[in-house]
Design a protein around this nucleic acid. Structure first.
Lengths: 206, 206
DNA sequence: GAATCCCCTTACCGGTTGGTAGGGACGTTG
DNA sequence: CAACGTCCCTACCAACCGGTAAGGGGATTC
């Protein structure tokens, strides 16, 4: 086996971490691999050595995120009722830790861009995630009779409600000021839980 | 005055229109001015002649959108009750006409990017719009006692629910197929109205 | 101690970026 | 007919893009 820890985290992992942060902040086209490398004190060829192409590095970041979303599902206890599980799941997507904010921003960017970036990988990363959400929503009392289209539309609306916050955070801070943004941040999760509850309790449109 | 119509729409207006479509589709960094010009059968210097810089052209597109959002407010009849007006307003933001989809996508991109692009203009375009939404929400029965933070959080959640659809449209089409996406599209507005109603009726968290 | 592998470097490539300089076609105005 | 402004062109620029080629330092292996 290798020596215990030559660097606290492997260079490769640090590269992915930094790429995730910068791609989330500026988007795929908004960051160059040279900038990512410079942030790590390396040259872009160090990145290319590990990943070959910029696309592949981006793909690994997306893969990491897809893994996290799958992990969210596993961590929700199956005992609770379906409505509560869905609620927990959606709330678990957010929070103010940087990696989760990056995740929301990257998901939003991927949804915006993947159609352009050659219809490639991105979409499929999301597919099982969306499918699970639809399945879970169908299990909520009152929703079993809803059409696929209704279930999907509702899932989209809920995801939007959840993720828009992380996406709009910096802009809203600029508009309302730091302390007002912080106040909104503090109550966001509980208000979101309340909102999701109201939507689930109302059931689909008749 | 000038001759009635030398071209059906002035070249300048066509430029803004094309820029809006392409910026919405690919983002600020994802499109070059040469590509916008080529789409119009011109060279990039024709664009630079009219707008000077790429940033200025982008700013004019944002200005146009801000104007449309202000127009939405004016067009909602003041007679109706506050809940209904807010509902109408949010639903009016969407629809499947290309310019409105572009609007939602551009708003999302601007919210994602403006922090990076020098904290410049973008935010302020949105400020009165958000302020109006908060004011309107406060006027909805049951919401008058909510805190500013609660009102803002709810507005953010509702905007997310509204705009995520336009943003995610192409990706979802890729995942679920054309006809399923169309089915979702057809019922989205009414399902959204239903959802907004449920949220407003539930009131803020106590 | 020679060979090998891993990690990262400098040097370079063709292509594209936003932007500048200058000129030409055209209609309007004196 | 000359002067002028509008609109768009070709030509060009330095800077940067993602990616290739080749080599060096250092630890490991034989």
């Amino acid at each position: 086996m290798a020596t215990a820890f030559k660097t606290s985290a492997s260079t490769r992992d640090r590269m992915i971490e930094e790429a995730r942060a910068l791609f989330a902040e500026r988007g795929f086209y908004g960051v160059s691999i040279a900038q990512i490398a410079a942030e790590l004190g390396l040259t872009k060829q160090a990145l290319l050595h590990h990943f070959g192409t910029k696309e592949r590095l981006y793909g690994l970041v997306l893969e990491q995120i897809a893994g996290e979303l799958a992990g969210l599902k596993a961590s929700s206890e199956p005992a609770a009722d379906a409505a509560r599980r869905l609620q927990d799941w959606l709330v678990a997507m957010i929070s103010d830790t940087p990696p989760r904010i990056e995740r929301s921003r990257l998901l939003m960017r991927e949804i915006l861009d993947n159609q352009v970036r050659a219809e490639r990988a991105g979409s499929w990363y999301l597919k099982p995630f969306l499918g699970d959400l639809v399945t879970m929503l169908r299990g909520v009392p009152g929703w079993s009779g809803a059409s696929d289209a209704q279930l999907r539309a509702t899932v989209v609306q809920l995801l939007g409600a959840v993720n828009y916050h992380a996406v709009s955070g910096p802009t809203f801070r600029g508009i309302f000021g730091t302390e007002a943004a912080q106040a909104m941040n503090d109550i966001f999760a509980s208000q979101l839980r309340h909102m999701v509850h109201a939507v689930l309790a109302a059931g689909p449109e008749v």
